[in-house]
Amino acid sequence: MLQEIVISGFGGQGVLSMGKILAYSGIMEGKEVSWFPAYGPEQRGGTANVTVILSDKPISSPIVDLYDIVIVLNQPSLDKFESKVKPGGTLIYDDYGIRRKPARKDIHVFKIEAMDESMKMNNTKVFNMLVLGGLLKILPMIKLENVMKGLKKSLPKRHRKLLSMNEEAIVHGMEIISREG
C-alpha cells in the first residue's frame, strides 16, 4: 500500500494538524509515514498545504509529482492541485466559496460540505475532522480505532478534553461526503 496525499486550504483551517493526525494514525496502523508542509509565508487567511505519505514500505521521496488523493478546501487549492491528481486518483473538495468546480473526468471526485456543516454545528473548529472523516469513509486505509489513537497522540495534553468532540466529528464527516463523478 502506498498513498500519496496532499491536503490544501486556507491557513488556520487545520490543514497541517489534519495531516499530522493522519500521519499519527498511519503509525498506529503500523505504516511508514512522512509529513511535509509548505512552510512558506503561510498564515491565517493565506494558503497552506501538507503532503502526507502512508506506505507499507520505507518512503523514498517526501516530495512527489502527482498524488493518489488530493483534498482541497478552497478555490486557490483546487486551481493548484486538480492537475496533480494521478489518473484514476481521488479528489475531495469542499464547495464552500468554490466558483469553478472540478472539471477532470479521469478521476474520482467527491464533495464534502464540511464548512457549511461545521457552521450549522456552530463549531468551525471541527471542520478539519469532518473532512478527515469523509476521507476515511471513501478510503478506509486506516482502521477507525487507530485514527482515534492517532488523534489522541497528536492532541496536546491540555486539549485532551476535546477528544470526544473530535471523534464525533470524524464519524459525522463519514456521513456527509458524497460522490460527484
Binding site: 500521519a23 511508514e32 509515514v33 512522512s34 509529513w35 511535509f36 508542509p37 512552510y39 518512503i59 517526501p62
Partner: peptide
Amino acid sequence: DGVIGQMMEK
C-alpha cells in the same frame, strides 16, 4: 536543509 528540518517522520 528545510526539507529534512521541516518534515515529520517516524
